[in-house]
Amino acid sequence: MTNQNESLLQVRDLTTTFHSKGRALRAVDGISFDVRAGEVLGLVGESGSGKSISLRSIIGLARDYGTVEGNVYWKGEDLLTRTDKQLQCVRGSQISMIFQEPMTSLNPLLTIGLQIEENLKAHTDLDRRARKARAIELLDTVGIPSASSRLKDFPHQFSGGMRQRVMIAIALASNPELLLADEPTTALDVTIQDQILQLLLSLAKNLNMAIVLVTHDLGVVAQTCDRVAVMYAGRLVETGSVRDVLKRPRHPYTLGLLKSVPENIPPRTPLYSVPGTPPALDALPKGCAFAPRCHKAEDVCLGSKPPLSVLGDGISSACHFTVDIREEVLA
């Protein structure tokens, strides 16, 4: 690999297959992307698009229920060839993860102080005293008021937003260089979502931590991410800088998603809607997976899957007709 120094994480042809009743279902189908140090990458898609599975495949969690192929280079080393045991020194220390449901990802029977210290014990050489001090410092960093007195509290004594802060504090315990965030604000109210996103952003900036943020909300992407990768039916359909992709989408699916959101359109007028529903994994079309819902689709779309091709300026799109879309956006 030549550009190791630039990219922290390089995902190449990641493919995750589930086996259900004798059939192979491809949840993630050959996706490739890079994450640079300190950058916030948004992985966006609707439910069933494979965005969460991709994240779990990167860190080795998807192995439990599927076959993961391809390469995931972490600082040049392939994580997929490692055993679970070998992964441990990366997982939870250099790469941390937070989840959508902070209640179920915290142990309800342990105080949060213990849960943070547990992580510190596993990944740092601090003694007991220093661990406690560090735990307080971490809770303080994530904006939990009167941190020292809350170490003895149990998860159920925190609100949803506070629990997500605790999860972030635990994830930060090992000074990770990459944080994988799986819909971290989906279960939260918009004002709390705003607070958590701002917190993540300031942490990324101050600690030079990269974040891969999985979300279904394009607004969240617009507000937090540097770059975005749009997923549909297990494949990446468009990647690029947030401004480029959101302001001038090249792929009809991205365009459809954007136009479905009622923003900047006269009230009570019909919203643009993508007809149909995303395909089921066991009934993926032969060609472009979006073709049956795409108004631009032609014969070539039904016959062959378009590859993700670079269009310049770091933008890539997987569509046979990327050029034509532009005019439509401006119209």
């Binding site: 589930f18 259900s20 009743k21 059939r23 279902l25 949840a27 439910s47 069933g48 698009s49 494979g50 969460s52 599975i53 229920y65 089921a280 994994l281 066991d282 009934a283």
Partner: peptide, 15 residues
């Protein structure tokens, strides 16, 4: 685990 849900929900439809 929305992905897994759809995965399971989609399979029985055929048979």
């Amino acid at each position: 685990m929305t992905q897994l849900d759809t995965l399971q929900a989609s399979t029985p439809q055929k048979k």
